[in-house]
Simulated assay, not measured.
Amino acid sequence: MAERKSAGYGEGDAGGAIKPAERIVETARRLFCRDGIHATGIDRILAEAGTAKMTLYNQFGSKEGLIETVLRRESDDWCAWFAAALRAAGPTPRERLDGVFPALRDWFAQGDYRGCAIMNAVAEYPKGDPVIHAIAMEHKAKVGAILMALIVQAGCRRPDELLGEMAILIDGAIIAALIAGEPTAAPAAAEAAGRIARLVIADHCADAHHHGPHRS
Rank of each mutant, 00 (worst) to 15 (best):
A154M: 09
A185M: 12
E74T: 01
M119N: 12
Q59D: 10
Q59F: 01
A117Y: 02
D203E: 08
L163G: 02
A136Q: 09
V70Y: 07
R44Y: 00
W81A: 12
R29V: 03
L56H: 10
D35V: 00
A2L: 09
A176L: 12
E3P: 06
G61L: 11
L31H: 06
G10E: 02
G144N: 05
R4L: 14
R34V: 01
L199W: 01
R44C: 03
K5A: 06
G164H: 08
A83N: 02
M1Y: 04
A2S: 11
A134V: 06
P213Y: 03
R114I: 03
D160E: 13
A176D: 13
Q59G: 05
A80H: 05
L147P: 05
A103M: 00
I18V: 14
L162C: 06
G144T: 03
W78L: 12
A208C: 13
A123N: 15
E22T: 10
P20N: 04
A80R: 09
A83R: 04
A28W: 01
E68P: 09
A176F: 05
E138Y: 02
A2H: 01
N120R: 15
P159L: 05
T69Y: 02
A117S: 13
S75K: 03
V131L: 15
A2Q: 06
H211L: 08
Y57V: 10
A145Q: 13
G111P: 00
I42V: 15
P130R: 11
G155A: 15
